[in-house]
Structures are given as structure tokens and as C-alpha cells.
Computed example of a mutant assay.
Amino acid sequence: MKTPKRIQPLIEEGLVDEVMRQLMSGKEATVYVVRCGEEIRCAKVYKEASQRSFRQAASYQEGRKVKNSRQARAMEKGTNYGRKMQEEAWQNAEVDALYRLAAAGVRVPKPYICFEGVLLMDLVTDESGNAAPRLNDVELSEQQALNYHAQLVRQVVLMLCAGVIHGDLSEFNILVDGDGPVIIDLPQAIDAASNTEAAVLLERDVNNLASYFSQYAPQLKHTQYGKEIWLLYTAGLLSPDSQLTGRVAADKRPANVAASNEAGTRPRAAHRAGR
């Protein structure tokens, strides 16, 4: 096929030899199957900010650090240069997350380079060597659903142990290869320790999984893996080997009304004492 304009710089640099076909087009990027020497990989071409339906919400940007102070100031002011830097930071977030997660044993595509707004990475394939389908396009038995759900909850745990939360996890950004689910699409990934929305985003990710798989395995519908994982994480008890139940015990301790009333009267007493 004709080489897309955005991939041409990779051809010129010898990073890509041939664009074979378009694989998919999503809300933030278009993905192509490419040949790099003897290897078949994929090239993710990020769309311009004005063309994306997925906006860079403040909840995803929070906690992301820019080392260059000039770039940080330009991004805050919203200058043309600042918007360009913001785009680079958005794209690099996925590359950084992929390297970080791959090192932690999370099932993600292996990244190679992000060059001129194009991310070059492994092509995830099925047992026949064809491009792996999205989870949303796979029909599952109850046992397969339970198995895939368990695998993905474990992947979420591994991600959080590495300090990363996907932030937009659903059946649409999970592929299924011969060994099970592979997590993709991470430009909105957040740092769990520096983002105040971390707990909300983690729980939403895990609830999305439960909601999807419960159509095949109804017993998953009311599980609470997200809350359980976050409680273990904040208590410093989460590890890749943590045994999860999917249940969180309700806090049945009686409210300390006397202490609450006492605390509520202290400001008034102090005010009277200060007169």
C-alpha cells in the first residue's frame, strides 16, 4: 500500500522497510502492519490533538513531570511550542509505560521506538500468526471468561506494583493471543503515587473488566477486586503474589459519636477562650 505521510520518516531512517496494510483506526491513533527487515511489527500513528475523540483530561495529566523547565512553562501557557511539547509528552507516556510494564512482567506489546509521533512495537498475533483480535470480538465460554478475568486482574496487580494504572482499560484495548489477554493503548496511563484520581481510575478499570466478563460469568458482576487491590496497595501489602478474594469486608465498627461531638465543640470553646 501507499506509505502514509507520517511513516515516511521511519522509512527514510531505515526503521521501517514496508507498510503492508492498515490494521485499525481508533480514537487516538491509526495502526499499520509494517515490515522491519525480517520482522513483522506494527506502527501506531498518533492522531493530532484536534482529530482525537479522546481528550487529554486533567485527571490523566496530573502527576506527569516535565524535566525541562522551559517546556513546562510553555505547556502551562498553552503556546504553540507548549502544545507541541504536550503532544510529545502524551505519546512518550505510552512508550515509558510499555517499557516499565514489560520489565515488570505485564503482558504488553514490546516497544522499540517512538519517532516523529509514530510508535513502533511488536505485532500481537493469534495462534495462526494473524493479527490478534480484540477481546470484544472473541466469543467466550464461562470458563474462558473466568480464566481471562483472573489473568487480567493479575495483570492489573502487576501494573500497580510497578506504580502504573492503565486508566482506560476495557474490552476494546485488550487483545487475545495464543496465551491469553494482552493489554494495549497506554498513552493515558497514570502514576499511582502522584495522581489524586488513582483510586477512582483503578477501580473503574477493574469494574470494566467485571462488567464485561459477567455477561459470560454472572458471578463476577458484583465482585470488588478494584477496592480490594487498592486497599492492599495503600496498606503497603500488595505484591504480585497477593491472594485476592474479590470481596471487601464492610467496616462495622460503631461511629465514635462522643469523639466526634468533642471535636466539633473544640473550635467554639477555643473561640470563647480567646475572647
Score class of each variant (00 low, 15 high):
5 K>C: 05
11 I>N: 05
14 G>M: 08
15 L>D: 00
16 V>H: 00
16 V>C: 08
22 Q>S: 03
23 L>V: 10
23 L>T: 06
26 G>V: 11
27 K>A: 14
29 A>L: 08
30 T>S: 15
30 T>L: 03
31 V>A: 00
34 V>E: 02
37 G>Y: 06
40 I>V: 15
42 C>Q: 09
51 Q>G: 10
60 Y>E: 01
61 Q>F: 07
67 K>C: 09
68 N>C: 14
69 S>M: 10
70 R>Y: 12
72 A>L: 15
78 G>N: 09
83 R>E: 07
86 Q>I: 06
88 E>S: 04
93 A>E: 14
97 A>D: 05
100 R>M: 07
105 G>R: 07
108 V>L: 04
108 V>G: 05
114 C>S: 14
114 C>K: 04
115 F>G: 02
117 G>C: 02
117 G>E: 02
124 V>P: 06
130 N>W: 09
132 A>C: 04
132 A>Q: 05
132 A>F: 06
133 P>F: 03
135 L>F: 11
135 L>G: 02
142 E>K: 15
145 A>T: 06
145 A>K: 06
155 Q>P: 03
156 V>Q: 01
157 V>K: 01
157 V>A: 03
161 C>P: 00
164 V>F: 07
164 V>T: 14
165 I>V: 03
166 H>W: 03
166 H>T: 10
170 S>D: 09
170 S>I: 09
173 N>M: 06
174 I>N: 03
177 D>Y: 01
178 G>I: 02
179 D>S: 12
179 D>T: 08
183 I>R: 08
189 A>R: 08
195 N>P: 06
201 L>G: 02
203 E>A: 10
203 E>T: 09
204 R>W: 12
204 R>K: 11
205 D>E: 03
206 V>S: 10
206 V>E: 03
208 N>Q: 15
218 P>W: 05
219 Q>R: 11
224 Q>W: 02
232 L>T: 01
233 Y>W: 13
234 T>H: 00
236 G>H: 08
239 S>G: 05
248 V>T: 06
250 A>H: 08
255 A>F: 10
257 V>K: 04
258 A>S: 09
259 A>W: 08
264 G>I: 13
267 P>W: 05
270 A>E: 14
271 H>W: 08
271 H>Q: 15
273 A>T: 11
273 A>M: 10
273 A>Y: 12
